[in-house]
């Protein structure tokens, strides 16, 4: 797809693509997605595909557009151009008679339910207890019974190692504990896609391990699709099966963790990896 900055339409066309089996529907597909803030172009005609059950880590210098990708998938922001598909269905916009049409809020709302996100700053609701945080959306969004939601919440708290914190207030917990609750809150919605946005960046170094351990466990025991932005390269190596290196809104290199971390081909990837390690 030729654009002004890419007249031959070569950049961003093949990178990010994956081989799909016949009839396979990918979990996430970006088609020529553009995101601009005013005159600042963050994503410039991005294409990439994430297969179901994939764990894809996005790495790259800050400002390279990684977090923007997660925010677009979560519909926290709208793309400026292009299309995003979740499980083959359009997320926010469709093409109709050559025009880009925005989809209704109600439709987005339904799409959104299939996606969960864990934030850098946890964003737990301080006006609710830990348990209330976890059951809030299952009860009031998905319409589950309160009893079921509570049972599940206790299971999840067990899973994240906080079985005795159900009645606690988020603000009385440490950062690491808050993030574990946030992970439980996300899982309580049974998302098909989990977005992890620098989930350890706001944590003290000594508690990073416990949070990553829980995520490793989730990756090992479920088939949820994960899209991860992180600066923890060891975590990316352990959990993901694909790594995409971003710079200036483009994929500059991609491959398995072994390929990217042990044998990077691109100069920018090499420079980035030596800077963060």
């Amino acid at each position: 797809m030729p654009t002004e900055s890419d007249p031959l339409g070569e950049l961003g066309l093949h990178t990010g693509a994956v081989e799909l089996a016949d009839g396979e529907i990918p979990a996430i597909r970006f088609e020529n997605v553009v995101k601009q803030y005013g005159s600042n172009t963050v994503l410039d005609g991005l294409n990439f595909t994430v297969r179901k059950g994939d764990r894809v880590t996005l790495i790259g210098p800050s400002g390279s557009g990684k977090t923007t990708i997660l925010r677009l998938v979560m519909t926290l922001e709208d793309s400026t151009d292009g299309y995003i598909f979740i499980d083959g269905q359009p997320l926010t916009h469709i093409e109709k008679d050559g025009r880009r049409i925005v989809l209704k809020d109600k439709y987005r709302f339904e799409m959104r339910k299939r996606i969960g996100m864990v934030f850098q700053q946890f964003n737990l609701f301080p006006n609710m207890t830990v348990l209330e945080n976890i059951i809030e959306a299952p009860v009031h969004v998905l319409g589950h019974s309160k009893a079921d939601a509570i049972t599940r919440a206790h299971e999840l708290l067990e899973q994240v190692g906080l079985p005795d914190k159900a009645k606690a207030h988020p603000t009385s917990l440490s950062g690491g504990q808050q993030q574990r609750v946030a992970i439980a809150r996300c899982l309580a919605m049974d998302p098909e896609i989990m977005l992890l946005d620098e989930v350890t960046s706001a944590l003290d170094p000594e508690v990073v391990g416990e949070v990553l351990g829980i995520l490793r466990n989730i990756a090992a025991t479920t088939d949820v699709t994960m899209l991860i932005v992180t600066h923890e390269m060891q975590f990316a190596r352990d959990v993901s099966n694909r790594v995409l290196m971003f710079d200036a809104g483009r994929i500059v290199e991609e491959g398995s963790p072994a390929e990217i971390f042990d044998n990077p081909q691109e100069e920018r990837t090499q420079a980035f990896l030596s800077a963060v390690s």
Binding site: T75, L76, R112, G116, M117, F122, F125, H140, L195
Partner: peptide, 26 residues
């Protein structure tokens, strides 16, 4: 804080739910 609004979106809460259950109490 903006993060609170974003968390309600990530949990697919409706506008009314967001205001009544999360934003207004804070």
């Amino acid at each position: 804080p903006k993060g609170q609004w974003e968390a309600t979106t990530a949990l697919s809460m409706s506008n009314v739910q967001r205001m009544v259950r999360v934003i207004f109490p804070q």
